[in-house]
């Protein structure tokens, strides 16, 4: 409680103390909000907005690299090429012949798995809000589905690598692995967060009072899913 006695010799009119709100509310300092929104949720949305620019740049880089890989690789910089020994030029030409052979059914399946993990994620949130004890199941399912997706990506990378599409071999390889790798790293980060939640849920510490924590992880998880929706169509389905 504010010490009103300290105000004795001060004119009270127009002072902020005279027009203060109920002091009890005030003591919650950091939790007064002027929009009626949760700080954490607002911050998460701002962060996701920032991520739009990040993935936008990566997707653009990929599209540009792909375009130039197809039409201009050999032209490249002929003036530079002219100074390369013949065997290097030969090697270069071979590296350009490597194109990815997408396995569309396989990638469709992993896309589907990621979409399904979004469903289990919202169900986990709902279960937490309702505090019905099911959130540990749904959170575990989400983490599991995410892990399957990552495993699929590892398998895909290995397959491409064996076909000769390496990270350093050509422009396309660098761009493809960087874009999908960045997404994979985001998924992995999400899995770590989910596992933490699963741990909390099994310890019985993830009750409805922490529903917002689950919702925040969910927002991140769905965003990662959205990015994959874009990547799947733009990278895999549109040649």
């Amino acid at each position: 409680m504010t010490d009103v006695a300290a105000l004795d010799n001060r004119p009270v009119a127009n002072s902020y103390l005279a027009t203060a709100l109920d002091d009890h509310d005030d003591a919650h300092g950091g939790h007064r909000t002027s929009l009626g929104l949760s700080n954490m949720k607002l911050a998460m949305w701002l962060f996701l907005g920032s991520e739009c620019l990040l993935f936008g740049a990566l997707i653009s880089t990929y599209l540009l690299s792909k375009a130039r890989f197809v039409t201009e690789v050999v032209a490249g910089n002929p003036l530079v090429t002219s100074t390369m020994p013949a065997e290097l030029i030969q090697e270069f030409a071979e590296s350009q012949s490597v194109e990815p052979m997408y396995d569309i059914p396989f990638t469709s399946a992993s896309s589907f798995i990621l979409l399904m993990s979004s469903l289990t994620m919202v169900l986990a949130h709902k279960a937490t809000v309702e505090d019905n004890g099911q959130n540990k199941i749904w959170l575990s399912a989400t983490a599991l589905l995410g892990s399957i997706f990552i495993a699929g990506q590892v398998y895909e990378f290995t397959a491409f690598y064996r076909e000769g599409l390496t990270y350093t071999g050509n422009l396309f390889g660098s761009a493809f692995y960087t874009l999908t790798g960045f997404h994979g790293a985001h998924v992995t980060g999400g899995i770590l967060m989910l596992l933490s939640l699963v741990y909390m849920a099994f310890r019985g510490k993830l009750r409805s009072d922490r529903a917002e924590t689950v919702e925040l992880v969910g927002l991140y998880w769905h965003f990662v899913d959205i990015v994959w929706v874009l990547i799947f169509t733009i990278v895999y389905l549109i040649p």
């Binding site: 009626g36 607002l42 949305w45 907005g49 620019l53 936008g56 997707i59 653009s60």
Partner: peptide, 21 residues
């Protein structure tokens, strides 16, 4: 109330990203 702010924060960034690229 004010929930549209989330959509603004995210959608606005998305629009900036798309236009720029």
């Amino acid at each position: 109330l004010n929930g549209r702010l989330f959509a603004w924060a995210f959608g606005g960034s998305l629009v900036v990203a798309m236009s720029v690229y």
